[in-house]
């Protein structure tokens, strides 16, 4: 997915995990994905660099679709579609 397409996404759920370090964002993502239904999109905000590699890897393992990451200043947004 291109950056433009990602930015245009209206996520069904936004999780702001910017105040936490690893494993905070991962746990926040796990908790929040239980609250959406299959096919819905979740957006995770994080400022923890390690999360960038972690959440896509976790999502793939759990069969969720990792759609991409968008950089903002000082943090980033990770997009996932629930399996």
């Amino acid at each position: 997915m291109s950056q433009e397409e990602l930015v245009a996404i209206q996520a069904d759920k936004v999780v702001d995990a910017r105040g936490t370090a690893c494993p905070g964002p991962l746990l926040a993502a796990k908790k929040a994905i239980a609250e959406i239904t299959s096919g819905q999109v979740m957006e995770v905000l994080s400022a923890d660099e390690g999360t960038k590699k972690d959440i896509p890897k976790w999502a793939t393992k759990k069969n969720h679709e990792y759609m991409g990451t968008v950089e903002e200043s000082g943090f980033f947004k990770i997009y996932l579609r629930k399996a």
């Binding site: 991962l26 390690g50 590699k53 972690d54």
Partner: peptide, 11 residues
């Protein structure tokens, strides 16, 4: 050399 978190390690 990569930077990651515990999720990557466990996987």
């Amino acid at each position: 050399l990569n930077y990651c978190g515990v999720g990557t390690y466990l996987a």
